[in-house]
Design a protein around this nucleic acid. Sequence first.
DNA 1: CGTCCTACCTGGAGGC
DNA 2: TGCCTCCAGGTAGGAC
Length: 341
Amino acid sequence: MPELPEVETVREGLERHAVGRTVEAARIVHPRAVRRDPRGPAGFEAAMAGRPFKKAERRGKYLWLTLDDGETLLAHLGMSGQLLIGDPDRPMSPHVRARFTFTDGGPDLRFTDQRTFGHLLLAPLTTDAVATPGEQPSPCMEGSRPPSPLAPGTPRCAPDGKDRHLIGRTDDAASADAAVSAGRAVPVPIAHIAPDPMEGAFDAAKFAARLRRKHTGVKRALLDQSLVSGVGNIYADEALWRAKLHWARPTETLRGPEVSRLLAAVTEVLGEALRAGGTSFDALYVNVNGESGYFDRSLNAYGREGEPCGRCGTPIRRDAFMNRSSYSCPHCQPRPRNAHL
DNA sequence: CGTCCTACCTGGAGGC
DNA sequence: TGCCTCCAGGTAGGAC
């Protein structure tokens, strides 16, 4: 499945092959692909026509293309999503959910997704009151509204600009905690997502403080995208293995050095995966094949039930966790007595 | 409000 | 061979 490194590879591909081009037409082949867009398929198609792709950005596993008027085309690849650029005349695969053609008549962009967990939507950018110098302030600047843009009745930054000024950062420090990060504008629907550990806006001290304030198991916390984004089941297990922490360890009992170890492990695991997964792809293909080279070589815990731990040789254990699996070393990561299951 | 649980979806694997 | 069940995963939104 596309993890953070694959999403970054896709972002780079889009930067290379889609940025600087203008959409001629968008076609939604499967309505579920835009289920989070309040415009619906027809409205989405209409709103995308003639829009330029100016920039390709990413936070965690979300990526977006910046359009004009402070709007973005936001994408999540879910479990099986791909964004492919290629010859516009090639046959349509059965899993194509959306297609974009360009005014230059060149390669088209297709969103394919077998399991349809992924989605696309048009969304305005939030802006931070303390935007970084040099960054263009978007029109959506004033007002103070919590980041729940898709709730029914919530005004959004509409393409016609009518309620554009209702969207912006919230000044409520508590709810803005994760939402607005050091000068970075992000699409409104993901304003509640915390920065991922690979971006400059990530605040290690804040992460540590918020983590220790929680009352849950440490793996649940790692998967909580409002605490830290970009960590999924695989990297959570890998980071916990490195940090020698059991997945059910109560967050409120974590000591300072353990939190530091954990964050270092998360950063290392993601960094290595990025370096391994962000490899080249050929000129007309935005690569997401779901297989990072990293997965084959470097997993120490995930998916390795019964195989010896790379540190101590004890067979890796698999536990049921949140309707899925957790892998850990019974020796290096002993279950705490007061586990948060 | 913080935490927890479930629906969503499809195709591949394995059981019988 | 074929059908059935299970499993994988991230997220939103509702329950508590």
